[in-house]
Amino acid sequence: MEIGFIKKLINVIVSNDNEQTTGISDDELVRRFTQLGDESSFEEIVNRYSDRIYGFALRITRNTSDAEEVFQEVFLTLTKKLHTFRGDSKFSSWLYRVTVNTSYMYLRSQKKHENNISLENYAPYDEKGTLMGRIMYKDWSSRPDIIIFNKEAVVIIEKAINELPESYRTVFHLRDIEGLSNEEVGNILEISIPAVKSRLHRARLFLRDKLSDYFYEWRR
């Protein structure tokens, strides 16, 4: 691609919504950009995915400056590699995969790679298989202050999610926060559907316990 063209392209990356591109499918945007050189299509991809890429990078790295490095790297990669997207998977899945790979590469380069603890045997019940005395006294299910509009509550929720080991955190983020299907998550992380389900199950059990502990302590 010519330098002049890329420069022109970058100049149009502004946050304004573009009426001509907002209703168009991702695949069509990619086609218009890579085959026709349509700059507003790239702009729309940036608009559409900035929050999700940054949010996912932040979930993996747990640090805003690392997340921004990854975020920038992903878009740099896009300007160079968007033409390699073949359409075998959903564009969004491909983009999440680029983000996860870029995050791992970045963390390795910074020697920040996390020890991944296994939660395979994590469970809230005792050795007899009962929950007796473990759950009810920390019941927060009907507390009115635990809502998403309460900033303090959100800080606690984010803190708890970020305590999940990395491989559980990514699955939880994609599945329960982004709302993707098991298949999509498996595709992005290149793991089987049973592996997605099993990690999600343990992640949720771990997180439910963490939230119970934190909310039990909070504003009592």
Binding site: T130, L131, I135, M136, I157, G179, R204, S212
Partner: peptide
């Protein structure tokens, strides 16, 4: 205990689903 487990589990999914 299990009733509370199920209720808090559901509530957790409700809240985290809104973080999107």
């Amino acid at each position: 205990e299990c009733m509370t487990f199920v209720n808090t589990y559901k509530r957790m999914l409700e809240i985290t689903g809104k973080l999107k």
